[in-house]
Amino acid sequence: MSKILYIHGFASCGEGNKSLLLKSYFGADNVIAPDLPPSPIDALALLEEILASTKIDCLVGSSLGGYYATILAEKYRMKAILLNPSTRPWETLAAYTGWQKRFCDEEVFEFKPVYLEQLKMLQTAPDKGSYLLLLQSGDEVLDYAKAQSLYNTHKVIVQYGGNHRFENLDEYLSMVEKFINK
């Protein structure tokens, strides 16, 4: 069975609706979903530790996690499934510097201005990895058209309507499975 590394978005946690859905569909032992630190450098270091110690067949990233998944997919020439991914997080997260609460458990963390600089420094073009993008036009946080344009040489699915949380991921699980296994 394929191993998936699920990468959550900003102010979220590894144990969220999407990771639980993936674990239910693919098996709990086949989905790794860590809680990421707020620092992009530290988050990527943790993800790379996992990649070094476990054979991962595919990355699944949501929002900021989609940005991280792109960085890793490019570095390691991997498959990645991106759900409403952030394409310019140093811009979209600028308003969130300072103290924040995680959505999943209300834990307080600091999102420092230097993290925006780190995110910009890590930017990479999606040309070595293999991508499936699942976008929703009703995303109230990110402009889906920016991701659609950036990843236009890859498989891009746009569902009209929806929202940033991509709450109907269950409707796409067979497509996700086919992409992972191709």
Score class of each variant (00 low, 15 high):
M121C: 12
P38Q: 10
A11T: 07
M1V: 09
N168Y: 06
L51W: 07
V60C: 06
N168E: 08
R102W: 01
I41G: 01
L93V: 03
H8D: 05
N168A: 04
T87C: 11
A52F: 09
S19Q: 05
G161P: 03
A28C: 09
G27I: 14
Y6W: 04
E177K: 15
K18Q: 10
P85R: 03
H8S: 10
D57M: 05
M175Y: 05
Q123W: 07
L173P: 02
A95N: 08
R102H: 11
V114A: 14
Q148L: 12
S86T: 06
Q118G: 05
A94P: 11
A43N: 02
A28V: 15
I71S: 02
R165H: 06
E110P: 01
I157D: 10
S137A: 09
S86K: 03
L59Q: 01
K3I: 05
K23W: 10
S62I: 03
S24W: 06
L173M: 15
A147M: 13
T124P: 08
T97L: 04
E110A: 15
E140I: 05
G65V: 03
P85K: 01
T87Q: 04
V60H: 07
Q118F: 06
L134A: 09
L142H: 00
K155F: 04
G27H: 03
K128E: 14
L133R: 06
A147C: 09
L21R: 06
A43Y: 00
D57K: 04
G9P: 02
H164R: 08
A11Q: 08
E107F: 04
I50L: 03
A80N: 05
H154N: 13
Q136N: 11
Y25I: 06
L5F: 10
K101W: 02
S130W: 00
Y96W: 11
V114Q: 14
D139H: 10
P40S: 15
T70N: 04
N168R: 11
W99R: 11
Y115A: 00
Y144P: 00
E48S: 08
A80W: 13
C13A: 15
P89L: 10
V141H: 01
K55G: 13
